[in-house]
Amino acid sequence: MTTQTAINYRELAEQVLSGYELTRAEALRIVEAPDDDLLDLLHAAFQIRKSFFGKKVKLNMIINAKSGLCPEDCGYCSQSIISDAPVEKYALLSKESILAGAQEAIHRKAGTYCIVMSGRRPSERELDHVVEAVKEIRETTQLKICACLGFLSEQHAQKLSDSGVHRYNHNLNTSKENYSNICTTHEYDDRVDTVQKAKESGMSPCSGVIIGMGESDRELVELAISLRALDADSIPVNFLNAIDGTPLEGAQHLDPRKCLKAVAMMRFVNPSKEIRLSGGREINLRALQPLGLYAANSIFVGDYLTTQGQEPTSDWQMIEDLGFEIEECAL
């Protein structure tokens, strides 16, 4: 029986910074690293992060512009048709409410404002409504706009891009192999198609994962490699928040150390990309949240779609205590 040679994470980081692409086997060893290696691993991940982003942290804010009423059956989502979670349900917010959200994003020191709608895909009326709001936000602020409206046609993607939407989010969420265990009303490849359409329209592609939905470590690595192949500019790393009333209700919280290894792996595999600590970080990383920013360079500030986040002041303080700085927000 042979014993694997210990990984020198710092040397591996130097190779990555020289253009080396991590193999699946190397990425898997990072996810499965011993807990005793965690600080050394994060230090190496920080060398990559620092090379591309310094000590700056990007802040993003979400507005849930349309809540509930979704015909999809995604097992993690409190807004899906099969969810019994007691979430607020409402049609698309008024333009005034969306504009007010942009001002709140600036107040929270966010540089990116994320307009999110539940549902399979936007109707023509809904898309035009969002486009008009985006145009006004772009005329009056320096905010970057990210939209997350569901599946897109080529025409809808181009219309959003032409209106001034900088980025389009459509997460892969879980591996292709695991996808049918999480959702049956659409397929993994449908999500890949929308990410590609967003990119082809000129919008920056944003796509990420939800860790903790029954995927294996190998499948998590495959997701990281798939996002590298898609050339996603921004990768939200969510950690399952098993909401009561959803099929995944009762799933155990993740080990915070394993979560940090997964984030570090994402940084090694996608060295130059925005890695964002996203939904579920508060309840899964818990007291280790600050360590996540040694690999990630971005967070959501404030609440998520149907769950609460930390107070913005707590996030600001966390960033300051690390000796990091908030990336300059829009004025």
Rank of each mutant, 00 (worst) to 15 (best):
S78M: 03
I81D: 07
I82S: 01
D84A: 15
A85I: 05
E88D: 07
K89V: 11
K89S: 11
Y90R: 14
A91W: 15
L92A: 03
L93I: 09
K95Q: 13
E96F: 15
E96Y: 15
E96R: 09
S97R: 12
S97A: 13
G101K: 04
Q103E: 14
E104D: 14
A105I: 07
A105L: 10
A105Y: 05
I106S: 07
H107V: 14
H107G: 08
H107S: 14
H107P: 11
A110L: 03
A110F: 01
A110P: 03
G111E: 11
T112E: 14
Y113P: 02
C114Y: 02
C114R: 01
C114N: 06
M117K: 09
G119L: 00
G119N: 01
R120D: 00
R120K: 11
R120F: 00
R121W: 07
E124D: 10
R125G: 14
E126D: 12
E126H: 14
E126T: 07
D128R: 12
D128I: 08
H129P: 07
H129G: 04
V130R: 02
V130W: 02
V130M: 04
E132G: 05
A133K: 02
A133S: 13
K135N: 09
I137F: 05
I137T: 10
R138K: 15
R138G: 10
E139H: 10
T140N: 08
Q142R: 12
Q142V: 08
K144L: 07
A147F: 05
A147H: 01
C148S: 12
C148G: 10
C148Y: 07
F151K: 05
F151N: 03
L152N: 04
H156K: 13
K159L: 06
L160E: 05
L160P: 02
S163T: 14
G164H: 08
V165Q: 04
V165M: 04
H166M: 09
H166P: 07
N169I: 04
N169F: 03
H170C: 01
L172V: 06
N173T: 09
N173E: 12
S175M: 03
S175Y: 01
K176I: 13
K176R: 15
N178I: 09
N178T: 11
S180R: 13
N181Y: 07
N181W: 05
I182G: 00
C183G: 02
C183Y: 00
C183M: 10
C183P: 01
T185C: 01
E187Y: 11
Y188K: 07
D189E: 13
D189H: 07
D190L: 02
R191Y: 00
R191M: 02
D193M: 13
T194G: 02
Q196E: 11
Q196I: 12
A198V: 09
A198H: 05
A198F: 05
G202P: 10
S204K: 14
S204E: 15
P205H: 05
G208K: 01
V209G: 06
I210W: 00
I210K: 00
I211N: 03
G212H: 04
G214I: 08
G214R: 04
G214W: 10
E215I: 13
S216I: 12
D217S: 11
R218K: 11
E219A: 13
L220I: 14
L220T: 08
V221S: 03
L223G: 02
